[in-house]
Structure formats: C-alpha cells, structure tokens
C-alpha cells in the first residue's frame, strides 16, 4: 500500500516536470514531435530505474557506513555519467532495435537534471530499497506522461494562431503552466 502511494504520487502528484521542475530542458527541447517525445520518455524511465538502484547501493553501502555523505554530489554525478555510457554500450550490443529507437537521446540524459534529482531526492527522503525502485519507475513514467502530453499539445499548437512574440518557448511555458494547474487537481488524492 505504501509502495502504491509512492508510485501514484510520483506519477501524478509530485510529477518531476510539473512539480519539482526537473528535466525542463528535454521537456521543452524534445517535445516538438510525438514519437521522439515517447522515445525520450522511455529512455529517461529506463535510466532512472537503473540510477535509483545504483545510487541507493552507493549511498547505503559505501557513503553512509563510512560517513562520506559530503561526497554524495560528486559520486552521484560520476555514477550517472558512467552509467549512461554503460547502458548505451549494453543496449547497442544486445538490442539494436531499441538502440535505434532511443538513439541520440541516451547521451543527452547525462545532463538531465531529473536523473540527478531522482538520486538526491531518494537519498533525502530516506527511502528503503524497494521504495527507491518504485519511486524511480514512477518518476520516469511521470516524466514520460508529461512530455508525451506536451508533445501532443504542441503538435496542435503549430496550427494555432499564436501572438508573434510568444512563439516558441513562451507559449510552451504557458501551456506547461496550464498543464501544471490541471495536475494540481490530483493533489488531494493521497494524504
């Protein structure tokens, strides 16, 4: 039950993009086409799940026992950077179709603050192992949901008559604001 609450809240209520403002760069950059948005979402979900597992292990088996918490930032970012590289090589070898689908989105993920944010938030909230994994999957799906919805709206927006100065990033941010407003409706769901 606890796990289900974490899962639902990570997707809908504390959505990474619309509540924590994490991963705004890909959210605005890769949301122009629906299919690339889906690929990006899947790639992020995938890396987030693995990051959640690995960062938990590092935090609880190495950093905390030896009182090295101040190395959290450095070690997390290095782990994420090398992990993304590793995942990329692994996928290229084992599953070429998946590699084709994710393509250039994998390396981009290194600089995605959502991944780093996930590692830090999970450490901050003191989740145990299972909770961290569920939090990772949920947050990834939440990101996917937000970016896919955004891409759908933006494809329609191309046909709309937007005031000249607001074209591009301006209108995208306003749409995101209205979406965040909509997601606010979920906030009473879980106490």
């Amino acid at each position: 039950m606890e796990l289900l609450a974490i899962f639902i809240s990570a997707i809908l209520i504390n959505n990474f993009v619309l509540h924590y403002f994490l991963g705004i760069c890909p959210f605005l950059g890769v949301s122009k086409k629906l299919d690339s948005a889906i690929s990006m979402g899947l790639a992020v979900t995938f890396v987030m799940t693995i990051t959640a597992v690995v960062s938990w292990i590092i935090n609880h088996w190495i950093l905390l026992p030896y009182k090295l918490e101040y190395l959290q930032i450095v070690s997390f970012i290095l782990v994420i950077a090398s992990l993304v590289q590793l995942v990329e090589m692994f996928i290229r070898k084992t599953s070429p179709p998946l590699y084709q689908a994710l393509g250039i989105f994998l390396p981009l993920i290194t600089t995605n603050c959502a991944i780093m944010g996930l590692a830090l938030l999970a450490a901050l909230k003191n989740y145990n192992f299972m909770e961290t994994v569920v939090f990772g999957v949920g947050s990834g799906l939440g990101f996917t949901l937000a970016i896919v919805l955004m891409a759908g709206i933006r494809e329609q927006l191309d046909l709309a008559d937007v005031p000249e100065p607001l074209k591009g990033a301006g209108i995208a941010l306003i749409v995101a604001g209205i979406m965040a407003l909509g997601f606010f409706g979920f906030s009473g769901m879980i106490k």
Binding site: L18, H19, F21, P163, E164, P165, L166, A169, G170, I171, A172, L173, I174, A176, G177, I178, A180, L181, F184
Partner: peptide, 17 residues
C-alpha cells in the same frame, strides 16, 4: 505554486521579445 512559475516566465519571455 508551480503553475505560477511557468506562466510568469512564459509571459516574461514574450515581453522580452
């Protein structure tokens, strides 16, 4: 709240343009 951040920045970007 979070929606305010998106809306303010969006309108500001338009103004800057």
């Amino acid at each position: 709240l979070p929606p305010g951040a998106f809306l303010t920045l969006g309108v500001l970007l338009g103004l800057i343009m």
